[in-house]
Structures are given as structure tokens and as C-alpha cells.
Design a protein around this nucleic acid. Structure first.
Lengths: 346, 346
DNA sequence: ATTTGTTATTTAATCGATTAAGCTTACTTT
DNA sequence: AAAGTAAGCTTAATCGATTAAATAACAAAT
């Protein structure tokens, strides 16, 4: 890097004082440490002239604080998470923190590695979007008393700080929205996952059906292992062949929706006449679709900012009590779920 | 963080030797520094038992190397860049480097700040997707002899390492593809930018027209200031009202394409019969569109990996000569630009 | 018995910033 | 004049790892 790295010592020499004075002045502690007026001014002057930048490494080594946050997200190739990453980064910068980002790619092993690497890099704390089967890792952080906040996904059994969505309610409202719009046969496509947020989405969907006394045949609920066109195809085929054919579909993620819609296009089905659609998450593709897709808007901004706030507060006062936030998602209703009932009325 | 941070000293005490020996052994320098066999084994044993992790800060402070790469991208909310970020991160990890990411949001000021922050954080080098008006910043890095590689965008006048696309050729081929498919009136929508890659795309488009002796009225080329629906609207309106109405459009970025397609939908124009489309970049939305969009595939993987390779090589051997790579993009032809001529033939 | 040589290990400086403790002056107070 | 105290500064230890230089212990050579 730059040739001669300017240090406190250089300033001290130029000002003919010890490094201690320089340190005091540049850290604004001149009053309490009784540094002389003129000397202080001189030091500040020289520091400005030479454009002195303190060495973070030395500072951190001494203080034990790196002002770095480790952000572990489940999949950075997913725009939802990429956006969250950006928000976290921006927000952290406001408080003087740098963020290092790692993507666990929904893989517990990678997640573990990342946590190790980041601890080794002396991050002050973590923000984590957990992958499946990482409950033990989170427990471990708790045990070691390492500050962290879970983001978007959390483990209800663990006493952690977190910021998530009220997924149950969001899914419930999605179901409700469709049913009250006259679509009584609502299917759901999600992941087969042990993660709480996914289970909650499914539970919310089921509760909506239950509330309206609709009995769903098993085929209406599809839990795919992976987001492959094959799994989606056979799943949707079953829904359409079922004793009661579905006339609406809820997708648990926008990527599932995109796969699903591709197949629906292939089948030549029209949205929403043949099949109404609601999806979690927002995507550019939803706007461009011939029939704009109704989606459940997730407040990424709030999620990201709040996570940073909680973590930063915690880093400053580690003794603080746990903060657990469940945010509300809102449905953005568009053509893909337009009511059949108002059609009749009008 | 963890209570008592285990250090070399602890191991030294437990093994009843000085820290020097421990350092030698754990850095695999026991042969050259002639450490006794049994002692060496003992040290390794104890280190493993205590799960010793060296302190990066101390190491870095001493060595002046942080094994950290600063990645500055133009806009992390753009999936293209987000994906590149991920690739860079993965690739860097393979060589033992951690990546810290910053988004300049296409803003020269933010870019400058980020570079400062990262230098301050003692990154070993940079990978940069430059924003407009940052040529001076890049020149500055050159002057200070700070290792860096430009990615996806570069400044032809500066003697830097870079990995970019042959944008001229890609645009030329896009134009060619359309014209040879029977669409003689090809419009182009790009940004009004001083950045080389954008200029090259425009030049390639114009060259394709020129080669086929097509004279384009000014309205065919739209250079928007920002990607707003208003600008796109008036621009496309003009193209359609022009003396020679366009029957095909090239978009310089996928986001411009999405805005454009929205308006084309509004107008009720059908793709490709009323208007053929080719766009730079790949997007999920292109697959989902009723008529899959022809796009210019950018080899993100290669771009990202190569940038890391070049930088890492440079960090290891700073005296190395400049590496400048221009990669080829390939057209993925789909329905949105299907040939009119083959239609006739069949 | 002294020198030379080898091998094995320790000492101490270093990277850069922080900070408790110590040391001079100069000025009050009795 | 002696003692106290405040102001203004310096010294030196510290964070943890690295490494040149010094040292010790012992064998071989003179």
C-alpha cells in the first residue's frame, strides 16, 4: 500500500511532544488529560496537514473492538437478501461500522465456516439470516456470549434477539384475501423445511382455509425439496387433477412463484381466470407479467435497519435485555387475484 | 466476545517455552529455525487441544497484510452486481481472502468515501466497478501504487488492470442479429453516460446499422438521464413517431428493458410482431415474459473469478505486468427477436 | 584446555495506538 | 520556608504475533 504509513509517532516528532499527547488530543480527551491549549492546537494542525488517519488495526488490537459486523445471509444471489445486505451495510455505516458479508447458500456447513472465519476476524457482532439446521450454531453463539441478531428467520425455542416477519399472519391474510375474493380452492407451494418461517407460512395458509370451513385435500399443499421445474410440475399437476381442482395458488417465495408461473404459462392457463396467484416477496418479474402478480410485501428496509439498530445498541450496552421484533407484511393486491365477486356485482 | 482470548503466550506457558518457538512451529518454520522434534510436537499438540486461533489483527499489524479485498460495486441492488459480488467473495475465499463490499450507488462521492474507508481499513487491494466521474480516483490509486483491478467497466486512457466485456462487439452483434432477422429499423435505449462501456455499446449499435447501410434518424437513439418511466415513454413515443418507425429495440441494460417493456405493454404493442427486443443482461423477468426476451449474456462468473485471480496474483507479485482482459458476450436468441425472414421461408 | 561449530532456545524490538502512573515545574497555602 | 496541589508532560506497559540477534549447551577439532 502507501509507502511510509504515517503514524502517531510522526506527528509527535513533528510537534516535539510524546505520542501520548497526540493520542489524547486527537481523541478529544485534551480537557480531562490537561493538554496545553497551544500544544493541542499545534497537534491538531499537524494532523490535518499530514492528513493523518489512525491505524484501525492497532486501535482494534488495543481496544478489542473492530467496528466490524459480520452479516451472514442465506443466499446472496437472491435479490431479497442482496437488498437486505445493502440496507444493513448502509445503516451500519451510519454508526461507524463496516460490514463483511458472507453467503451460507442455505448450507449449515458453510454457515459454520463463515461464523468461524468471522469470529477469527474479530467481528464485534453478527447479523444472521439462518439456514436450516443451524440452531446449534446459534445456541453456540449464545453460550459464548457473542452479540448477534437473527434477521428474517428465527428459532422460537432460542432466547435470541431477532427481527422477523409475522409469517403466520401474512400467509393467513393471503389465504383470506383469495377466499373472500371468491377463490375457495386455494393451493400452497412452499419448501419442505424445518425452518420456522416456512412452517408459519404453511400454518397461516391452513388456518385461513380452516376459518372458512374449507377442507383441503392433501394435494393442495405442495412442499418441494428443491425449486426444480420437475417438482413444481408434478405438484401443480396433482393440484389440478385433485378431487377439487385448485383455482388459486399461494407461493411461499418469489422464486417458487417464478418457476410455477413458467409452468402455468406452458399449460396455457390464464391468470387469474384459470388460476389466481399470490406470492410472498416482490420481484421485477411480477410487474412485467401480463397480469401483474399480487404479492406479500416484506418490509426489507425496516427489517435491515432494525436489525442493525438492535445489534449496535447491544454492542454499546451488552447488558441490555433481548429485543424480539415481529413485523407485519402487507398484501399488495393486483390483477392476479382480482375478486370474482365484485365482477359479479358490477 | 469470548472471555479470555487465547494467545501464543498461553500456549508458550503451557509448553514451558518462549512464544518464539510457538510462532515458529505453528507457522511451519520449525525446520529452518531448528526447533526440537519433541518440543515441536508438544506445541502442536497443545495448540490443537486449546483450539488456538491466531489473532488476525496482531498478525496484520505486524505484517502489513490484512488478507482483505475491498470490493466496490456500482449498485448492489442490481442483481447483476450482487451476483458478481457473490462470485468475487467465493473466489477470494479460496485464496484465503475476505471481501468487504461497498456500493457506490453510481455516485462518485460515495465511491471516494468508500475507497478512503477501505484504505483506512487496510485492505490489501481493490476490485472496483467504477461509477461515472471516478477516473481521478482510479488515477489516484495508480499514483499511490495501491493494487486494484477494474471490473466490468474500465477507462481506456488509464494503464490499469481490468476485466471487462467487449461491449462494442456485443452491441454490434445484437444489431446485426436484428437486422439480419429482417428488422431494419432498430432503435437503441441506453444511458447518457461518459462511461466507456456505455459509449461502446452505442458505437457497436451504430456500426451495425452502418454496415447494413441503414441511416438512422436521431430519434432511434435514446440516451436517458435516469431510468424513469417518463423519459422512456417520451423516448419510445418519438421512436414510433419517427419518419421511419422502429420495429426493433436494443436495451443497454436489463433494467432499461424492464421499464421499456412495461411501457410497450401499456401501448398494447406485441413482441416481436410490433417490436422485436434484445437486451443486455439476463433477468428472471425475461423468462417469465409472454414472449421470452433475447438477451446478451454477460459471463459474470468469468468476470468475477478473473478479477480475483488477477488481483491475488498481483498481491503476491506486485511487480507483475498489467493484465487487461476483454471478454466476449454471447447472444441468447429467443422469441423476442425471432427472424421475420425464416417466417417467410417456412 | 581452548577454540570452533552446531543445535536449540530465549530475549527483546517491532507494528501503532492507548493509558495508567510517574515526573517536573510553578503556584498556593499555612 | 516547608508543604501541598495543580497543570502539563513523558515514560513505559499493553494488545498478540513475528523475527533478528543473542545466548546457552554441548560436541568436535586443535
Amino acid at each position: 500500500m502507501g509507502k511510509k504509513n504515517l503514524s502517531l509517532k510522526d506527528i509527535a516528532e513533528k510537534a516535539q511532544v510524546s505520542t501520548a499527547l497526540v493520542s489524547y488530543v486527537l481523541n478529544g480527551r485534551e480537557k480531562e488529560t490537561r493538554v496545553g491549549q497551544e500544544i493541542a492546537e499545534k497537534i491538531r494542525q499537524i494532523a490535518k496537514e499530514l492528513n493523518y488517519q489512525p491505524n484501525y488495526l492497532a486501535k482494534s488490537l488495543r481496544s478489542g473492538k473492530t467496528f466490524t459486523i459480520g452479516l451472514i445471509i442465506a443466499d446472496i444471489s437472491n435479490p431479497f437478501f442482496a437488498n437486505i445486505a445493502r440496507i444493513v451495510e448502509d445503516e451500519a455505516k451510519k454508526s461507524g461500522y463496516t460490514v463483511i458479508i458472507g453467503s451460507s447458500d442455505e448450507n449449515a456447513g458453510k454457515s459454520r465456516d463463515l461464523i468461524d472465519v468471522f469470529i477469527n476476524r474479530q467481528v464485534d457482532g453478527f447479523i444472521i439470516v439462518s439456514s436450516e439446521d443451524t440452531e446449534d450454531q446459534v445456541q453456540n453463539l449464545l453460550d459464548k456470549n457473542i452479540p448477534f441478531v437473527l434477521l428474517d428467520r428465527h428459532f422460537p425455542a432460542l432466547p435470541t434477539d431477532f427481527v422477523s416477519l409475522n409469517n403466520y399472519k401474512a400467509a393467513y391474510e393471503a389465504g383470506n384475501h383469495l377466499i373472500e375474493g371468491g377463490y375457495t380452492n386455494v393451493g400452497f407451494i412452499g419448501y419442505k423445511s424445518r425452518l420456522f418461517h416456512m412452517k408459519e407460512r404453511i400454518r397461516g395458509y391452513q388456518e385461513a382455509l380452516h376459518k372458512h370451513r374449507i377442507t383441503a385435500p392433501p394435494a393442495w399443499l405442495l412442499e418441494v425439496e428443491f425449486n426444480t421445474l420437475e417438482e413444481i410440475r408434478t405438484g401443480i399437476d396433482k393440484m389440478l387433477d385433485a378431487r377439487h381442482r385448485v383455482n388459486a395458488l399461494i407461493f411461499a417465495t418469489y422464486r417458487l412463484a417464478i418457476s410455477g408461473l413458467k409452468y402455468i404459462n406452458e399449460l396455457g392457463l390464464r391468470v387469474p381466470d384459470d388460476l389466481a396467484i399470490v406470492s410472498f416477496g416482490q420481484a421485477e418479474a411480477f410487474d412485467l407479467y401480463y397480469c401483474p402478480i399480487t404479492y406479500i410485501h416484506q418490509p426489507m428496509d425496516d427489517l435491515g435497519k432494525t436489525a442493525v439498530e438492535i445489534l449496535v445498541r447491544k454492542l454499546q450496552k451488552p447488558e441490555l435485555i433481548r429485543t424480539q421484533v415481529l413485523m407485519e407484511a402487507r398484501i399488495v393486491a393486483r390483477d392476479s387475484s382480482r375478486s370474482r365477486i365484485t365482477d359479479v356485482r358490477s
